[in-house]
């Protein structure tokens, strides 16, 4: 199956012409991709069709013949962003498992449904709720710990931690730290500037540190760096692969 044409452009299907789908399609076309947008609501389709013309197709993409008419056999990517999680999940499952589409991206509307996407192997998925939650955590450090990157399969993650007032590590040099095995301090953010710490760097209250670690020592590390152990940001994966 040809996923790209001779100029290396990819054929993409976007399902759902809501605000997300319509704008996404427009951006993808501007970047030079060949895209077909599928919309099942007749009125919405007619609105979007005025701009996108033949690049939008009317039909219910959970029906296989609609996907086939849209040319799913030659698509390199399917992006399902309807407002319905079951639809997004099944469209991506069918794209991957029946039509061997190389890459799928699904939108999760209700974060509680993330587990179902995991179960059926539909990854990556994007949840706006999670993304906004993560931004809030980034902006409001009261949560203390932010997951910046989770590579669950590789058992590695990068977290951002605030060294709070009274933490036992304040005033200690990096080479005096007794970091849990499997964790490494990779960066310090202080007064708006980030730098890579050396052995002589002394940690101060208010420092934000980035650490790369095995998720299994996360609890140990956060306790060690003086974060209250009763808060955690485990439930905010956002975009996960």
């Amino acid at each position: 199956m040809e996923a790209t044409d001779d100029r290396g452009r990819e054929y993409m299907l976007v399902v759902g012409a809501g605000k997300v789908g319509w704008n996404l399609t427009r951006e993808l076309i501007e970047k030079g991709n060949e895209v077909t947008l599928i919309e099942s609501d007749r009125e919405r389709y007619l609105t979007v069709e005025q701009e996108l013309e033949h690049r939008v197709l009317y039909g219910d993409a959970s029906e296989l013949w609609v996907l086939e008419r849209a040319g799913i056999q030659r698509a390199g990517m399917v992006i399902a962003v309807t407002g319905d999680d079951e639809d997004n999940l099944l469209i991506c499952q069918v794209a991957k498992d029946k039509y061997n589409v190389e890459r799928v991206i699904a939108r999760v509307n209700n974060p509680r449904n993330r587990q179902h996407f995991e179960l059926l192997g539909v990854k990556p998925y994007v949840s706006a709720t999670d993304l906004i939650l993560r931004l809030i955590e980034r902006e409001v450090p009261r949560y203390g710990l932010v997951h910046l990157l989770d590579l669950a399969d590789a058992k590695i993650e990068i977290i951002d931690l605030l060294i709070g007032e009274g933490a036992p590590v304040i005033g200690r040099r990096v080479d005096e730290l007794d970091m849990p095995k499997g964790s490494l301090l990779i960066s310090v953010l202080r007064e708006g500037t980030g730098f890579v710490p050396t052995a002589e760097t002394v940690l101060e209250a208010g420092d934000e540190v980035l650490a790369v670690l095995d998720p299994r020592v996360e609890e140990e590390l956060t306790v060690y760096l003086g974060l209250r152990s009763d808060v955690s940001a485990d439930d905010a994966p956002g975009l996960r692969d």
């Binding site: 029906e63 999940l89 099944l90 059926l120």
Partner: peptide, 25 residues
């Protein structure tokens, strides 16, 4: 289709029966 697969894969229910109107799927 989604809940049938949850029953099948997550809870390992031995027999799962699903109503699907679309013959192709």
């Amino acid at each position: 289709i989604v809940i049938a697969q949850i029953a099948q894969r997550r809870f390992r229910v031995e027999t799962v029966i699903t109503r699907i109107l679309d013959p192709y799927r």
